[in-house]
Amino acid sequence: MQMTVQTPTANGLEPVVMALASWQRDGLPVQLHPGDLGWQWRFGADALADSLRVWSRDEEIVAIGLVDHGVIRMALAPSVNEDEDVARVLVRDLEDSSTGVLPAGSAVEARFGQALRSLLDAHGWLPDGP
């Protein structure tokens, strides 16, 4: 499994928005939503792109995070809900401030992703706290 994380460019936002929109499902917990990206876009495409972290596995987007005032609001593809390999990569990147994904002392909002939520818990991340 080849997983990468990147911050998209302003010109690369369309596939991110399309992936996020395709993940919205009735009956699943509300996670980062395309409307949230639209709200951030009011500051311009460059500002939106700078606030995003996009994880891809074998060139398919599987997770998106929006960094907003010390919190990264996460969305995961429904297909990786229970994927422990993806969860391990996400938690590694979230915990290591040298990756540039998340500044130290930040919080993670992950309302979806059973494997991710379990692993965050196992690593000492507290619900409703950094």
Rank of each mutant, 00 (worst) to 15 (best):
L37T: 00
A115W: 02
D96R: 11
F112C: 06
D93K: 05
V16M: 03
A87Y: 00
A77P: 03
L102I: 04
P8G: 04
R25C: 00
G38Q: 08
L120F: 02
H33I: 01
R117T: 07
A87H: 00
S79V: 11
G12D: 10
R57G: 07
V86W: 04
G65Y: 03
G70K: 03
E14I: 13
A115T: 04
G27R: 04
N11T: 13
T4C: 08
A75G: 05
F112I: 06
L119F: 01
G113Q: 03
V91N: 02
G100S: 05
S22L: 06
D36Q: 14
R73H: 13
G35V: 07
S22Q: 08
H69V: 13
E60K: 15
I72N: 03
N11Y: 12
L32V: 09
W55L: 10
D93C: 08
E60W: 10
V80M: 01
P29K: 06
R117N: 06
W23H: 00
E14M: 14
G65Q: 06
E109C: 14
L32H: 07
P103A: 15
D68G: 01
W55C: 09
L126R: 08
D121F: 14
D85S: 15
L116E: 02
S22G: 09
A87M: 04
V101M: 02
V91R: 03
R57H: 03
V86L: 09
E14P: 14
G44F: 02
A104T: 09
S106A: 12
